[in-house]
């Protein structure tokens, strides 16, 4: 089953994923008109920042079992068995806040939905887009490969191959040549460390 795999070390904090998420969940689905709609579509992926100023993309993992589903008292949160995606039925949601309490990753927010009621709100893995054969919007716009849409097992197989090669070559830790982005991150960490002195 394809899942969205997050590689936070690749995230550059451009926030394109948030913008795309808002746009595809808006009424008009156009970046030019979405910001002007009367009920603003809010993004369901959150990019936090660590104290070392590194960006961290945080979205629903569609856990199995899902703590939010277990905590929901109206059964508004349910799993679509065919895709494994955990969805929120906003008609049933009574905005009680139990799901935010249960979510170990802090990805649930509360916003006004189309019928002007506030209800719980989280990533739906672009359920509607997937039915049309498209990939989740956040993955589509991420140009650094921080978000990828892959069959989980294939992803793990690739990782196993990589690890196997390294072990074969006797290399304990991957000695990557320092690309520009890791250098930038190291510099930002230095700035923070200096501030703390």
């Amino acid at each position: 089953m394809k899942v969205v795999v997050v590689r936070p070390e690749r995230c550059v904090g451009c926030l394109q994923c948030r913008f795309a998420c808002s746009v595809v969940h808006s009424e008009s689905k156009s970046p030019f008109t979405a910001p002007y709609e009367s009920i603003l579509s809010k993004p369901r992926i959150h990019v936090g920042v660590t104290t070392g100023k590194e960006p961290f993309p945080n979205k629903c993992r569609h856990c199995n079992p899902a703590p939010c589903e277990m905590a929901c008292i109206t059964k508004a949160i349910f799993r679509d068995e065919s895709t494994g995606i955990v969805l929120i039925n906003s008609d049933r949601c009574i905005n009680c806040g139990m799901c935010a309490m249960a979510c170990p990753f802090g990805v649930i927010r509360y916003h006004v939905y189309v019928d002007r009621r506030t209800s719980a709100h989280k990533c739906d893995q672009c359920f509607a887009r997937q039915k049309e054969g498209k990939i989740p919007a956040c993955v589509e716009v991420c140009k650094v490969g921080a978000l990828v849409f892959e069959d989980y097992n294939k992803m793990m197989d690739k990782a196993t191959d990589q690890l196997a090669s390294l072990v074969y070559l006797g290399i304990r830790e991957k000695e990557r040549e320092k690309g520009p982005y890791p250098t930038l991150i190291a510099y930002k960490n230095t700035l923070q460390e200096i501030k703390r002195r």
């Binding site: 995230c11 550059v12 904090g13 451009c14 990019v47 936090g48 100023k53 650094v144 982005y181 930038l184």
Partner: peptide, 10 residues
């Protein structure tokens, strides 16, 4: 503003 966009910082 944080995280600031890495593309622009680079």
């Amino acid at each position: 503003q944080e995280p600031q966009c890495g593309y622009c910082e680079l």
